[in-house]
Amino acid sequence: MLDSTDHTTSDLRHDMVAFRVADQDFCIDIGMVREIRSWSETTFLPHAQPYVKGVINLRGAVVAVIDLAARLGLGVTKTDPRNVIIIAQVGSQTVGLLADHVSDILPVPPEAIKPMPDVAAEEAKAFITGLVSMDDDRLLRKLDLARILPDTKTLAK
């Protein structure tokens, strides 16, 4: 779903929000980002997946925070006041993504997004839809947020 929007608007330049998680660079389309907040203490959620840090109060809405590092199989993010929570909108759902810090907001032309090479099946690969090589030798991994969201249906039954 998210990919298709990317293709239909391929003539447009895309701004991406780049951020670091467990010493790797990732990015998502800026259109999905509602705001970036500094870390705030979460409230635990019982019976949640280990990568769900808990919930925070986003101006009255209850928003779950996902530890991206844990979700991508890159270890657990140590809670640090310098961490950020990227509030993203995926469909009708609002979700918080815990990252080390946001590094950039940068334009990425669609043709710069390269498909994932068929390398060894890493856990992270399931969530990455493309790669962007930057001039400064950084490699941005473009995340598919729809796949990152916790599948709560399995919990609810």
């Binding site: 409230t43 019982p46 919930v55 009255g60 209850v62 759902q93 979700v95 709560t152 919990l155």
Partner: peptide
């Protein structure tokens, strides 16, 4: 709305300190 059902939890609320309580 933003997460899903949690067994044993009916809803959440927001406390005076802004934190969420289940």
């Amino acid at each position: 709305e933003n997460y899903g059902e949690i067994p044993g939890i009916s809803a959440a609320t927001i406390l005076g300190n802004g934190r969420i309580a289940l």
